[in-house]
Design a protein around this nucleic acid. Structure first.
Lengths: 337, 337
DNA sequence: ATGAAAGCGCTAACAC
DNA sequence: GTGTTAGCGCTTTCAT
C-alpha cells in the first residue's frame, strides 16, 4: 500500500492538508497555481487517495454488491457484463457474492454488507429464498436495492424482470402447435416467482387448449445434480412419458439433453425440448436448441442504472420502478420442423 | 447504513468504547460478564462494525480483487467459483473487474486499487498486455499478486497455470494420429504466454512428424468477433483448406462450429476440431466437441489459496510459487472415431 | 479488567 | 484563497 498521503503532499509543498484536498478535487476556492503544483506532485509521486478514509468520512463507499445464485451460467455472467458496463462509467466498484441457491448463504452475505460496505445492492434471490427479512433489514438500514430476474414479491423495491408468464404461454403454444400432446414443465423451483410465472403461462396455454388440471404436468427439480439427472431420466423413460419438455432454466436443458443421449431418446422426434436459456451454443447443439432467450445484458445494465438512480437521488422512489424487458423465442430444431 | 456504532453500545452499557471493541473481538482482557453484556446488546441492536473504519485503522481491507479479460466464458466463471470458495472461508470480499481484453482497461483498473482498496490481486492478463509496468507498480506498493492462467513472465510473482505446452503437443499428436495432414492452430493472441506455449506444443508435434517450418500453420485471431468469423470462414473454405483446427480458446471453438454450419463443412469428416475449452455443452454439441479441459475451479481455488498465504505471511515468497495443474484431453466425436 | 487518548487518511465547516 | 480544526468509527497503546 502506497504510504503517500495528502499530508505528505501538503508537507512537501508547504501548504495545508485541506488545500491539497480541495485542489485535488478541483475546488473553485483554490488558485490555479496551487492546483497545478498539487496535481503535478500528486502525479509525480503516484498519489492515490485512500478510498476507505474517504468512505469513512463521506459515508459513501463507491461500491455496490451483486448477489446471485451462481455465476457459471450464461444468464448470470451476461448480467454481470451489463452491470459492470454501467458501474465502470459511474466509477463504482463491484463486489460479487454467490448464494449457490442457499437461503442461509444469502442471509449471511447480506449480514456482511449492511454496515456501509456498499452503497447499493443488486440481487437475484436463491431458489430456496421465500422469506425476505434479511433483505428488508438491509433496506431498513437505508441501502437501495434492486432485484433482477428473481425478485421477492414481499419486498417492495425496484425490479427488473422479463415477461415470464407471457413467455411460458407462447412457449407452450409453440409446443402444442408442433403437435405435442403431453408436454411437461420442468421447474427449477416451486416458489421462485420466475418459475411460478413461467408455470402459469404453461398452465394457461394448456387450459386454453382444453387440458384438465390433472393432465397439466409440472416436475420440480431437486437441489442435487444427481437427483435431477435421475428425475429426468425416470420421467423421460416412463411408460406415460412426456413428448415435450419446457425447461425453466439453462442448466436443466443441458441435463435433459445429456439424459436423452444416455437413454437414447431422440430430440425432437421422441421428445421436443424448449428452454429458458441464454446459452451461447444453442445453435450448435445436437439438435440446435429452441430457446426463450432473456435480455440478460440489458437486464443487468438496466438494473444497475436504476440502482444508481436510487443511490444518487435521495428521494427517488425505487419501489415504483417495475421494469419488464421482454425475452425472445428462438425456434430451432429441438422443437421440430 | 446502520447508525449504531461502538460508541452507542458503550453509552447504553455505560462502559468505554475500547472495552466494547475488545469484548467484541473476544479479548482475554475483558471479563466474561462484560463480554456477555456486550454481545447480547450487539445482537439485539443488530450491530455490525463499519468495515471502512476498521480498514483505515488496521490497514487491511479484507478484500481482494480479481481482474480478468471477460466473464461470459466457462473457464473464467469456473475460476471465480474456485476463488469465491476460498475467499468465503477466509471472510474476504471479492471485487471483480473485467479488462475486456484491453490493456488500457487493465491499467486503469490497477490504478484504482493500489491505494489500500485491496489486500491482494488475482489477475489473468488481457490478450493485449505485453508490458507489465502497471502490475509492477502495484507490486511495489506492497500488494501481493498471483497470476492465474494468463501470466506475464516479466513480472516475478506466483503463478497458477496449466500444462499448456504439453497439451498443445498431445492435442496435435491426436490430430495427426487421426490422419490429419494439414492441421492449423487458431491462436487467440500472438503474445499471450498460454497461446505461445500451446503453439509451441503444436509446432513441436508437427516437427517431430517431419513437417517443415513453412507447413506449420498458425492463424491469429483478431479482436473483433466479425473479423474472426470472416477469418475462419476464409480459412476453412480456402482451396488449401485445413483438415483440422486446434482452437486456443473456447470462444474460437464455438465460432468454428458456427462457421462450419454456415459453410456446410462437416465435422469431423471435412474438418476435425479440438479445443482448449471448459464448455459445459461439449458432449451435446453437434458433433460432440473434443476438448482439452482446464482445471478451472481448481486453478481458481489454488490461486486464491496461494494469494492468502502471501497476504497472511509477511515473508512468504510469492515469486517462488509456480504451480502447474494439468489439463485433461477428452476425446469426443469432433476429432473422428 | 477497564478506560482515556491518539490516530488511521480524508473531508467539510468555519475561520482568517 | 488558504489554513485550522473536528471528526467519520474503529483499534491500540498505555494508564489505572
Amino acid at each position: 500500500m502506497s504510504n503517500i498521503t495528502i499530508q505528505v503532499l501538503a508537507d512537501t509543498l508547504k501548504i495545508s492538508k485541506s488545500s491539497v484536498s480541495k485542489a485535488l478535487r478541483d475546488s473553485h476556492e483554490i488558485s490555479k497555481a496551487t492546483k497545478k503544483k498539487v496535481l503535478a506532485l500528486a502525479a509525480k509521486l503516484n498519489y492515490s487517495p485512500n478510498p476507505y478514509a474517504s468512505s469513512l468520512r463521506k459515508k459513501k463507499s463507491k461500491t455496490i454488491a451483486v448477489v446471485m445464485p451462481e455465476i457459471a451460467d450464461s444468464f448470470f455472467s451476461l448480467v454481470i457484463n451489463g452491470i459492470q458496463s454501467v458501474a465502470e462509467k459511474k466509477g463504482y466498484h463491484v463486489l460479487i457474492y454467490l448464494s449457490h441457491e442457499k437461503h442461509t448463504n444469502e442471509k449471511n452475505i447480506l449480514n456482511e454488507i449492511h454496515n456501509g460496505r456498499v452503497d447499493g445492492l443488486l440481487i437475484s434471490i436463491s431458489r430456496e429464498t421465500r422469506n425476505g427479512d434479511h433483505i428488508k433489514r438491509l433496506q431498513a438500514a437505508g441501502v437501495p436495492i434492486v432485484f433482477f430476474d428473481r425478485e421477492l414479491e414481499s419486498v417492495h423495491t425496484a425490479t427488473v424482470v422479463t415477461n415470464d408468464l407471457e413467455c411460458g404461454y407462447i412457449a407452450t403454444k409453440l409446443l402444442l402447435q408442433k403437435g405435442c400432446k403431453r408436454p411437461v414443465f420442468f421447474s427449477h423451483s416451486a416458489t421462485l416467482p420466475i418459475c411460478k410465472k413461467r408455470a402459469e403461462g404453461f398452465k394457461l396455454a394448456l387450459k386454453e387448449a382444453g387440458y384438465k388440471k390433472k393432465d397439466i404436468r409440472i416436475i420440480y427439480g431437486t437441489d442435487s445434480e444427481k437427483g435431477n439427472d435421475l428425475l429426468i431420466k425416470k420421467n423421460i423413460s416412463a411408460r406415460k412419458r412426456p413428448d415435450a419438455i419446457l425447461a425453466s432454466v439453462e442448466k436443466n436443458a443441458i441435463q435433459v439433453y445429456i439424459a436423452c443421449q444416455e437413454c437414447n431418446i431422440k430430440i425432437p422426434d421422441d421428445l421436443k425440448v424448449l428452454a429458458f436459456s441464454n446459452i451461447e451454443t444453442a445453435s450448435i447443439l445436437n439438435p440446435p436448441l429452441s430457446t426463450i432467450t432473456q435480455p440478460a445484458f440489458e437486464m443487468g445494465k438496466t438494473a444497475a442504472t436504476v440502482l444508481f438512480k436510487g443511490i444518487e437521488k435521495k428521494h427517488f422512489q425505487l419501489e415504483n420502478e417495475k421494469i419488464i424487458i421482454p425475452s425472445v423465442l428462438i425456434e430451432r430444431k429441438s422443437t421440430g420442423n
